[in-house]
Write a protein that binds this DNA or RNA. Structure first.
Lengths: 194, 194
DNA sequence: GTGTCAATTGACACCATGTAAAGATACGGG
DNA sequence: CCCGTATCTTTACATGGTGTCAATTGACAC
Protein backbone atom coordinates (compact mmCIF):
# COMPACT_ATOMS: atom_id res chain seq x y z
CA UNK A 1 0.00 0.00 0.00
CA UNK A 2 0.95 3.67 0.21
CA UNK A 3 4.21 4.26 -1.63
CA UNK A 4 6.00 1.62 -3.58
CA UNK A 5 9.25 0.16 -2.41
CA UNK A 6 9.58 1.83 0.95
CA UNK A 7 12.56 0.86 3.02
CA UNK A 8 10.24 -0.80 5.50
CA UNK A 9 8.50 -2.71 2.81
CA UNK A 10 11.76 -4.15 1.60
CA UNK A 11 12.77 -4.98 5.16
CA UNK A 12 9.54 -6.89 5.57
CA UNK A 13 9.90 -8.72 2.27
CA UNK A 14 13.47 -9.71 3.04
CA UNK A 15 12.47 -10.87 6.50
CA UNK A 16 9.64 -12.87 4.97
CA UNK A 17 11.94 -14.61 2.54
CA UNK A 18 14.57 -15.27 5.16
CA UNK A 19 12.14 -16.58 7.76
CA UNK A 20 10.41 -18.87 5.30
CA UNK A 21 13.67 -20.09 3.80
CA UNK A 22 15.17 -20.79 7.21
CA UNK A 23 12.11 -22.63 8.44
CA UNK A 24 11.50 -24.53 5.22
CA UNK A 25 8.20 -22.73 4.73
CA UNK A 26 6.30 -23.90 7.80
CA UNK A 27 5.33 -22.47 11.14
CA UNK A 28 6.10 -18.86 10.35
CA UNK A 29 3.61 -16.40 11.82
CA UNK A 30 3.04 -12.81 10.92
CA UNK A 31 4.52 -11.85 14.28
CA UNK A 32 7.67 -13.84 13.49
CA UNK A 33 8.11 -11.98 10.25
CA UNK A 34 7.52 -8.66 11.96
CA UNK A 35 10.07 -9.48 14.62
CA UNK A 36 12.59 -10.58 12.01
CA UNK A 37 12.03 -7.34 10.12
CA UNK A 38 12.38 -5.29 13.26
CA UNK A 39 8.93 -3.73 12.99
CA UNK A 40 5.63 -4.17 14.75
CA UNK A 41 3.14 -6.75 13.61
CA UNK A 42 0.77 -4.01 12.59
CA UNK A 43 3.36 -2.37 10.41
CA UNK A 44 3.27 -5.50 8.28
CA UNK A 45 -0.49 -5.15 7.82
CA UNK A 46 0.09 -1.52 6.95
CA UNK A 47 2.00 -2.62 3.87
CA UNK A 48 0.33 -5.93 3.03
CA UNK A 49 -3.36 -6.46 3.52
CA UNK A 50 -3.06 -10.15 4.36
CA UNK A 51 -0.66 -12.97 4.81
CA UNK A 52 -1.38 -14.19 1.32
CA UNK A 53 -0.73 -10.80 -0.20
CA UNK A 54 2.59 -10.70 1.60
CA UNK A 55 3.53 -14.12 0.25
CA UNK A 56 2.62 -13.16 -3.27
CA UNK A 57 4.61 -9.93 -3.01
CA UNK A 58 7.52 -11.93 -1.65
CA UNK A 59 7.56 -14.20 -4.71
CA UNK A 60 7.62 -11.20 -7.05
CA UNK A 61 10.38 -9.73 -4.93
CA UNK A 62 12.40 -12.91 -5.23
CA UNK A 63 11.87 -13.05 -8.98
CA UNK A 64 13.59 -9.70 -9.25
CA UNK A 65 16.20 -10.54 -6.67
CA UNK A 66 17.09 -13.72 -8.56
CA UNK A 67 16.99 -12.16 -12.01
CA UNK A 68 14.24 -14.38 -13.30
CA UNK A 69 13.92 -12.61 -16.63
CA UNK A 70 17.62 -12.66 -17.32
CA UNK A 71 17.81 -16.37 -16.64
CA UNK A 72 14.85 -17.09 -18.86
CA UNK A 73 16.41 -15.13 -21.64
CA UNK A 74 19.47 -17.34 -21.45
CA UNK A 75 17.23 -20.38 -21.77
CA UNK A 76 15.43 -18.94 -24.77
CA UNK A 77 18.65 -18.06 -26.50
CA UNK A 78 19.65 -21.69 -26.97
CA UNK A 79 20.33 -22.76 -30.55
CA UNK A 80 18.64 -26.14 -30.49
CA UNK A 81 15.57 -27.45 -28.73
CA UNK A 82 17.61 -30.06 -26.91
CA UNK A 83 19.91 -27.41 -25.62
CA UNK A 84 16.92 -25.35 -24.54
CA UNK A 85 15.56 -28.35 -22.68
CA UNK A 86 18.81 -28.81 -20.81
CA UNK A 87 19.01 -25.15 -19.96
CA UNK A 88 15.41 -25.04 -18.80
CA UNK A 89 15.88 -27.91 -16.40
CA UNK A 90 19.12 -26.40 -15.13
CA UNK A 91 17.49 -23.02 -14.69
CA UNK A 92 14.68 -24.56 -12.72
CA UNK A 93 16.99 -26.68 -10.59
CA UNK A 94 18.99 -23.61 -9.67
CA UNK A 95 15.96 -21.44 -9.17
CA UNK A 96 13.90 -23.60 -6.84
CA UNK A 97 16.20 -23.44 -3.81
CA UNK A 98 15.83 -19.67 -3.81
CA UNK A 99 12.06 -19.68 -3.83
CA UNK A 100 11.41 -22.93 -2.00
CA UNK A 101 10.42 -21.42 1.35
CA UNK A 102 7.90 -19.01 -0.10
CA UNK A 103 6.65 -21.57 -2.57
CA UNK A 104 6.00 -24.02 0.23
CA UNK A 105 4.15 -21.41 2.27
CA UNK A 106 2.03 -20.53 -0.74
CA UNK A 107 1.31 -24.18 -1.42
CA UNK A 108 0.02 -24.54 2.12
CA UNK A 109 -2.02 -21.36 1.93
CA UNK A 110 -3.65 -22.59 -1.29
CA UNK A 111 -5.80 -24.99 0.63
CA UNK A 112 -7.57 -22.30 2.60
CA UNK A 113 -7.11 -19.15 0.57
CA UNK A 114 -8.48 -18.57 -2.89
CA UNK A 115 -6.08 -15.73 -3.61
CA UNK A 116 -3.08 -17.88 -2.75
CA UNK A 117 -4.50 -20.59 -4.98
CA UNK A 118 -4.79 -18.20 -7.91
CA UNK A 119 -1.30 -16.84 -7.36
CA UNK A 120 0.15 -20.31 -7.32
CA UNK A 121 -1.76 -21.38 -10.39
CA UNK A 122 -0.36 -18.38 -12.13
CA UNK A 123 3.23 -19.34 -11.43
CA UNK A 124 2.62 -22.92 -12.40
CA UNK A 125 1.08 -21.79 -15.67
CA UNK A 126 4.21 -19.84 -16.41
CA UNK A 127 6.28 -22.94 -15.76
CA UNK A 128 4.03 -24.92 -18.06
CA UNK A 129 4.42 -22.35 -20.83
CA UNK A 130 8.15 -22.83 -20.59
CA UNK A 131 7.73 -26.57 -20.91
CA UNK A 132 5.46 -26.13 -23.88
CA UNK A 133 7.90 -23.94 -25.71
CA UNK A 134 10.62 -26.52 -25.18
CA UNK A 135 8.39 -29.32 -26.43
CA UNK A 136 7.21 -27.29 -29.37
CA UNK A 137 10.82 -26.67 -30.32
CA UNK A 138 11.47 -30.41 -30.22
CA UNK A 139 8.50 -31.07 -32.43
CA UNK A 140 9.54 -28.44 -34.94
CA UNK A 141 12.94 -30.06 -35.22
CA UNK A 142 11.22 -33.43 -35.51
CA UNK A 143 12.89 -34.58 -32.32
CA UNK A 144 9.76 -35.35 -30.34
CA UNK A 145 9.19 -39.05 -29.80
CA UNK A 146 6.21 -40.37 -31.67
CA UNK A 147 4.49 -41.61 -28.51
CA UNK A 148 3.91 -38.05 -27.42
CA UNK A 149 1.94 -35.11 -28.72
CA UNK A 150 2.81 -31.54 -27.95
CA UNK A 151 0.12 -31.44 -25.26
CA UNK A 152 0.82 -34.71 -23.53
CA UNK A 153 4.58 -34.21 -23.55
CA UNK A 154 4.17 -30.70 -22.17
CA UNK A 155 1.95 -31.95 -19.39
CA UNK A 156 4.25 -34.79 -18.47
CA UNK A 157 7.38 -32.66 -18.60
CA UNK A 158 5.67 -30.00 -16.52
CA UNK A 159 4.67 -32.53 -13.90
CA UNK A 160 8.23 -33.79 -13.60
CA UNK A 161 9.35 -30.31 -12.68
CA UNK A 162 6.84 -29.92 -9.86
CA UNK A 163 8.26 -28.68 -6.59
CA UNK A 164 7.23 -31.75 -4.57
CA UNK A 165 9.29 -33.87 -6.96
CA UNK A 166 12.30 -31.62 -6.47
CA UNK A 167 11.64 -31.65 -2.74
CA UNK A 168 11.56 -35.41 -2.64
CA UNK A 169 14.69 -35.90 -4.70
CA UNK A 170 16.86 -33.28 -3.03
CA UNK A 171 15.62 -32.91 0.53
CA UNK A 172 14.45 -36.46 1.12
CA UNK A 173 16.81 -38.44 -1.09
CA UNK A 174 19.78 -36.14 -0.74
CA UNK A 175 20.43 -35.47 -4.41
CA UNK A 176 22.54 -32.37 -4.85
CA UNK A 177 21.33 -29.58 -7.08
CA UNK A 178 23.73 -30.76 -9.78
CA UNK A 179 22.52 -34.34 -9.57
CA UNK A 180 18.92 -33.20 -9.73
CA UNK A 181 19.66 -31.19 -12.82
CA UNK A 182 21.60 -33.84 -14.67
CA UNK A 183 19.34 -36.74 -13.82
CA UNK A 184 16.18 -34.78 -14.49
CA UNK A 185 17.60 -33.74 -17.83
CA UNK A 186 18.39 -37.35 -18.52
CA UNK A 187 14.86 -38.44 -17.66
CA UNK A 188 13.19 -35.79 -19.74
CA UNK A 189 15.49 -36.39 -22.71
CA UNK A 190 15.09 -40.13 -22.56
CA UNK A 191 11.36 -39.77 -22.45
CA UNK A 192 10.64 -37.15 -25.03
CA UNK A 193 13.62 -36.76 -27.35
CA UNK A 194 14.08 -39.08 -30.31
CA UNK B 1 -10.30 -45.26 22.39
CA UNK B 2 -12.80 -47.29 24.41
CA UNK B 3 -13.95 -50.31 22.39
CA UNK B 4 -12.57 -51.12 19.00
CA UNK B 5 -14.72 -50.75 15.91
CA UNK B 6 -17.83 -49.37 17.48
CA UNK B 7 -20.64 -48.52 15.12
CA UNK B 8 -20.11 -44.85 15.88
CA UNK B 9 -16.44 -45.09 15.17
CA UNK B 10 -17.12 -46.50 11.73
CA UNK B 11 -19.73 -43.86 11.08
CA UNK B 12 -17.17 -41.20 11.90
CA UNK B 13 -14.50 -42.77 9.75
CA UNK B 14 -16.85 -43.12 6.82
CA UNK B 15 -18.00 -39.54 7.22
CA UNK B 16 -14.38 -38.42 7.36
CA UNK B 17 -13.52 -40.19 4.15
CA UNK B 18 -16.64 -38.98 2.39
CA UNK B 19 -16.25 -35.37 3.49
CA UNK B 20 -12.61 -35.23 2.54
CA UNK B 21 -13.17 -36.98 -0.76
CA UNK B 22 -16.07 -34.71 -1.67
CA UNK B 23 -14.21 -31.56 -0.78
CA UNK B 24 -10.93 -32.63 -2.31
CA UNK B 25 -9.25 -32.62 1.07
CA UNK B 26 -9.58 -28.96 2.00
CA UNK B 27 -11.71 -26.90 4.31
CA UNK B 28 -13.19 -29.77 6.27
CA UNK B 29 -13.57 -29.03 9.97
CA UNK B 30 -14.13 -31.42 12.81
CA UNK B 31 -17.66 -30.07 13.13
CA UNK B 32 -18.32 -30.83 9.46
CA UNK B 33 -17.24 -34.40 9.94
CA UNK B 34 -19.36 -34.72 13.06
CA UNK B 35 -22.38 -33.35 11.24
CA UNK B 36 -21.80 -35.71 8.32
CA UNK B 37 -21.56 -38.62 10.73
CA UNK B 38 -24.67 -37.57 12.58
CA UNK B 39 -22.95 -37.22 15.94
CA UNK B 40 -21.84 -34.35 18.09
CA UNK B 41 -18.45 -32.78 17.63
CA UNK B 42 -17.42 -34.07 21.03
CA UNK B 43 -18.31 -37.61 20.11
CA UNK B 44 -15.57 -37.43 17.53
CA UNK B 45 -13.05 -36.44 20.18
CA UNK B 46 -14.35 -39.26 22.29
CA UNK B 47 -13.08 -41.71 19.70
CA UNK B 48 -10.11 -39.87 18.24
CA UNK B 49 -7.89 -37.69 20.36
CA UNK B 50 -7.08 -35.21 17.64
CA UNK B 51 -7.74 -34.30 14.08
CA UNK B 52 -4.49 -35.90 13.04
CA UNK B 53 -5.30 -39.13 14.82
CA UNK B 54 -8.61 -39.21 13.01
CA UNK B 55 -6.92 -38.72 9.66
CA UNK B 56 -4.42 -41.46 10.34
CA UNK B 57 -7.18 -43.83 11.43
CA UNK B 58 -9.09 -42.93 8.28
CA UNK B 59 -6.17 -43.95 6.07
CA UNK B 60 -5.91 -47.32 7.79
CA UNK B 61 -9.64 -47.70 7.42
CA UNK B 62 -9.40 -47.01 3.71
CA UNK B 63 -6.54 -49.45 3.30
CA UNK B 64 -8.83 -52.18 4.55
CA UNK B 65 -11.83 -50.89 2.66
CA UNK B 66 -9.84 -50.89 -0.57
CA UNK B 67 -8.13 -54.24 0.01
CA UNK B 68 -4.64 -52.82 -0.03
CA UNK B 69 -2.97 -56.11 0.87
CA UNK B 70 -4.83 -58.09 -1.75
CA UNK B 71 -3.88 -55.62 -4.45
CA UNK B 72 -0.25 -55.65 -3.42
CA UNK B 73 -0.20 -59.40 -3.53
CA UNK B 74 -1.35 -59.30 -7.12
CA UNK B 75 1.50 -56.94 -7.92
CA UNK B 76 4.04 -59.19 -6.22
CA UNK B 77 2.79 -62.27 -8.02
CA UNK B 78 3.94 -61.01 -11.42
CA UNK B 79 6.31 -63.33 -13.28
CA UNK B 80 8.73 -60.74 -14.65
CA UNK B 81 10.03 -57.49 -13.26
CA UNK B 82 8.62 -55.54 -16.17
CA UNK B 83 5.21 -57.01 -15.52
CA UNK B 84 5.57 -56.10 -11.86
CA UNK B 85 6.44 -52.56 -12.82
CA UNK B 86 3.31 -52.28 -14.94
CA UNK B 87 1.15 -53.75 -12.27
CA UNK B 88 2.62 -51.50 -9.61
CA UNK B 89 1.90 -48.34 -11.56
CA UNK B 90 -1.60 -49.57 -12.36
CA UNK B 91 -2.23 -50.45 -8.75
CA UNK B 92 -1.14 -47.01 -7.67
CA UNK B 93 -3.14 -45.25 -10.35
CA UNK B 94 -6.25 -47.06 -9.26
CA UNK B 95 -5.56 -46.65 -5.58
CA UNK B 96 -4.90 -42.93 -5.38
CA UNK B 97 -8.42 -41.73 -6.24
CA UNK B 98 -9.72 -43.65 -3.25
CA UNK B 99 -7.33 -42.12 -0.76
CA UNK B 100 -6.77 -38.75 -2.39
CA UNK B 101 -8.98 -36.72 -0.04
CA UNK B 102 -7.43 -38.07 3.13
CA UNK B 103 -3.96 -37.96 1.65
CA UNK B 104 -4.39 -34.33 0.80
CA UNK B 105 -5.61 -33.49 4.29
CA UNK B 106 -2.66 -35.32 5.80
CA UNK B 107 -0.27 -33.53 3.49
CA UNK B 108 -1.63 -30.21 4.71
CA UNK B 109 -1.53 -31.26 8.34
CA UNK B 110 2.13 -32.28 7.94
CA UNK B 111 3.19 -28.68 7.98
CA UNK B 112 1.91 -28.01 11.47
CA UNK B 113 1.65 -31.41 13.10
CA UNK B 114 4.56 -33.70 13.79
CA UNK B 115 2.35 -36.78 14.14
CA UNK B 116 0.80 -36.17 10.74
CA UNK B 117 4.24 -35.74 9.31
CA UNK B 118 5.39 -39.06 10.71
CA UNK B 119 2.27 -40.84 9.50
CA UNK B 120 2.74 -39.50 6.02
CA UNK B 121 6.42 -40.37 5.93
CA UNK B 122 5.45 -43.85 6.88
CA UNK B 123 3.12 -44.27 3.95
CA UNK B 124 5.61 -42.77 1.57
CA UNK B 125 8.28 -45.14 2.81
CA UNK B 126 6.01 -48.04 2.02
CA UNK B 127 5.52 -46.70 -1.48
CA UNK B 128 9.26 -46.38 -1.86
CA UNK B 129 9.80 -49.95 -0.76
CA UNK B 130 7.50 -51.05 -3.51
CA UNK B 131 9.48 -49.04 -6.02
CA UNK B 132 12.70 -50.53 -4.74
CA UNK B 133 11.48 -54.08 -5.08
CA UNK B 134 10.45 -53.39 -8.67
CA UNK B 135 13.82 -51.84 -9.47
CA UNK B 136 15.69 -54.62 -7.75
CA UNK B 137 13.77 -57.11 -9.85
CA UNK B 138 14.81 -55.27 -12.97
CA UNK B 139 18.42 -55.31 -11.90
CA UNK B 140 18.34 -59.00 -11.12
CA UNK B 141 17.02 -59.69 -14.60
CA UNK B 142 19.68 -57.37 -15.97
CA UNK B 143 17.02 -55.08 -17.33
CA UNK B 144 18.00 -51.95 -15.47
CA UNK B 145 19.49 -49.27 -17.70
CA UNK B 146 23.16 -48.72 -17.02
CA UNK B 147 22.68 -45.03 -16.24
CA UNK B 148 20.87 -45.95 -13.06
CA UNK B 149 21.77 -47.71 -9.85
CA UNK B 150 19.25 -49.47 -7.67
CA UNK B 151 19.16 -46.45 -5.35
CA UNK B 152 18.90 -43.69 -7.88
CA UNK B 153 16.33 -45.51 -10.00
CA UNK B 154 14.26 -46.26 -6.93
CA UNK B 155 14.32 -42.64 -5.87
CA UNK B 156 13.43 -41.34 -9.29
CA UNK B 157 10.67 -43.89 -9.81
CA UNK B 158 9.30 -43.12 -6.37
CA UNK B 159 9.23 -39.41 -7.10
CA UNK B 160 7.30 -39.97 -10.30
CA UNK B 161 4.56 -41.66 -8.32
CA UNK B 162 4.13 -38.79 -5.88
CA UNK B 163 0.57 -37.65 -5.32
CA UNK B 164 1.16 -34.08 -6.52
CA UNK B 165 2.29 -35.51 -9.85
CA UNK B 166 -0.85 -37.61 -10.11
CA UNK B 167 -2.88 -34.59 -9.03
CA UNK B 168 -1.36 -32.43 -11.70
CA UNK B 169 -1.79 -34.94 -14.49
CA UNK B 170 -5.33 -36.04 -13.72
CA UNK B 171 -7.05 -33.14 -11.98
CA UNK B 172 -5.25 -30.28 -13.70
CA UNK B 173 -4.47 -31.77 -17.11
CA UNK B 174 -7.52 -33.99 -17.32
CA UNK B 175 -5.79 -37.31 -17.93
CA UNK B 176 -8.10 -40.19 -17.13
CA UNK B 177 -6.99 -42.84 -14.70
CA UNK B 178 -6.24 -45.14 -17.62
CA UNK B 179 -4.16 -42.54 -19.41
CA UNK B 180 -2.25 -41.81 -16.22
CA UNK B 181 -1.51 -45.47 -15.81
CA UNK B 182 -0.43 -46.16 -19.35
CA UNK B 183 1.63 -43.03 -19.82
CA UNK B 184 3.26 -43.30 -16.43
CA UNK B 185 4.16 -46.89 -17.19
CA UNK B 186 5.58 -45.74 -20.49
CA UNK B 187 7.67 -43.08 -18.80
CA UNK B 188 9.01 -45.37 -16.15
CA UNK B 189 9.76 -48.15 -18.62
CA UNK B 190 11.43 -45.82 -21.07
CA UNK B 191 13.57 -44.42 -18.32
CA UNK B 192 14.68 -47.45 -16.41
CA UNK B 193 14.15 -50.57 -18.50
CA UNK B 194 16.76 -51.62 -21.03
C1' DG C 1 4.37 25.62 15.26
C1' DT C 2 1.38 22.90 12.37
C1' DG C 3 0.11 19.32 9.30
C1' DT C 4 1.14 14.91 7.68
C1' DC C 5 2.94 10.43 7.17
C1' DA C 6 4.85 6.11 9.22
C1' DA C 7 5.01 3.31 12.80
C1' DT C 8 3.76 1.74 17.62
C1' DT C 9 0.69 0.16 21.15
C1' DG C 10 -2.99 -2.25 23.06
C1' DA C 11 -7.49 -3.95 22.69
C1' DC C 12 -10.64 -6.75 20.33
C1' DA C 13 -13.49 -9.81 16.94
C1' DC C 14 -13.27 -14.18 14.71
C1' DC C 15 -12.64 -18.93 13.97
C1' DA C 16 -10.93 -23.60 14.48
C1' DT C 17 -8.91 -26.99 17.70
C1' DG C 18 -9.05 -29.14 21.86
C1' DT C 19 -10.66 -29.62 27.03
C1' DA C 20 -13.84 -30.10 30.83
C1' DA C 21 -17.94 -31.00 33.36
C1' DA C 22 -22.67 -31.96 33.94
C1' DG C 23 -26.72 -34.22 32.18
C1' DA C 24 -29.48 -37.56 29.12
C1' DT C 25 -30.40 -42.26 27.41
C1' DA C 26 -30.12 -47.09 27.14
C1' DC C 27 -29.08 -51.57 28.79
C1' DG C 28 -27.99 -55.60 31.74
C1' DG C 29 -27.99 -57.67 36.37
C1' DG C 30 -29.10 -57.93 41.23
C1' DC D 1 -37.65 -52.07 40.12
C1' DC D 2 -33.68 -49.72 40.75
C1' DC D 3 -28.59 -49.42 40.29
C1' DG D 4 -24.39 -49.02 37.81
C1' DT D 5 -22.02 -48.34 33.68
C1' DA D 6 -20.99 -46.92 29.12
C1' DT D 7 -22.05 -43.81 25.34
C1' DC D 8 -23.32 -39.64 23.55
C1' DT D 9 -25.04 -34.66 24.07
C1' DT D 10 -24.86 -29.99 25.60
C1' DT D 11 -22.71 -26.05 27.06
C1' DA D 12 -18.89 -23.49 28.31
C1' DC D 13 -14.29 -22.32 28.01
C1' DA D 14 -8.94 -22.05 27.05
C1' DT D 15 -5.74 -21.37 23.33
C1' DG D 16 -3.48 -19.51 19.31
C1' DG D 17 -3.23 -17.27 15.00
C1' DT D 18 -5.25 -13.81 11.62
C1' DG D 19 -7.01 -9.54 10.77
C1' DT D 20 -9.23 -4.81 12.45
C1' DC D 21 -9.48 -0.47 14.92
C1' DA D 22 -8.32 3.71 17.29
C1' DA D 23 -5.41 6.45 19.92
C1' DT D 24 -0.69 7.94 20.25
C1' DT D 25 4.15 9.00 19.25
C1' DG D 26 7.94 10.88 16.52
C1' DA D 27 10.04 12.95 12.63
C1' DC D 28 10.33 15.87 8.95
C1' DA D 29 8.72 19.63 5.70
C1' DC D 30 6.91 23.85 5.09
Amino acid sequence: MSRENTETQKKILKATVKSLTDSGGAGVRMSDIAKAAGVSRQAVYLHFASRTELLVAATRFMDEELNLEKRLEFVRSAETAEERLTRYVHFWGEYIPGIYGIAKALMVARHTDEAANAAWDDRMSALKSGCRSVVRGLKEEDKLKSEWTEDTATEAFWSLLLIPVWENLTLKCGWTSELYQSRMTLMVSTNFVK
